[in-house]
């Protein structure tokens, strides 16, 4: 094998190609000789938690729902800022009654 020029594992910007990025490889891959004890490792459970399997949990769902809520809030704020930035010369009849009629239509359903 040719000697690798890279001194350290190559990693894209913003990530250090360190232990944790490939930790699962030394814990899950590699040769295991059945006849030899694979030592029961203190602390491995904690590390397992860090590389834990993706579980589509209730927590995740609620987090996504909350993220959508945040998104809606941000969009509403952006809309309100846009409305606030509109020239005041806009005919009042266009902006005022419309939400009211919509609200009335919904409540009558």
């Amino acid at each position: 094998m040719t000697v690798m020029a890279q001194a350290a594992p190559m990693a894209p910007a913003g990530r250090s190609g360190s232990l944790y990025d490939t930790l699962e490889l030394i814990l899950d891959k590699g040769i295991v000789i059945d006849a030899f004890v694979r030592v029961s490792l203190i602390g491995i459970e904690i590390l397992r938690v860090e590389v834990r399997v993706v579980i589509a949990s209730v927590d995740t769902f609620l987090r996504y729902a909350a993220a959508l809520g945040q998104l809606e809030l941000a969009q509403r704020q952006a809309r309100e800022e846009l409305v606030a930035a509109l020239p005041p010369a806009l005919p009042q009849g266009l902006t005022e009654p419309e939400p009211q009629t919509r609200a009335r239509a919904r409540s009558s359903r």
Binding site: M1, V3, M4, I26, L27, D28, K29, G30, I31, V32, I33, A35, F36, V37, R38, V39, L41, I44
Partner: peptide
């Protein structure tokens, strides 16, 4: 591995002695 090909063991393998 930088010196030559190697097959890595999984983390944590201990052999009881050299003979085995």
């Amino acid at each position: 591995w930088r010196m030559g090909p190697v097959l890595p063991m999984r983390f944590g393998v201990v052999a009881p002695d050299g003979g085995r």
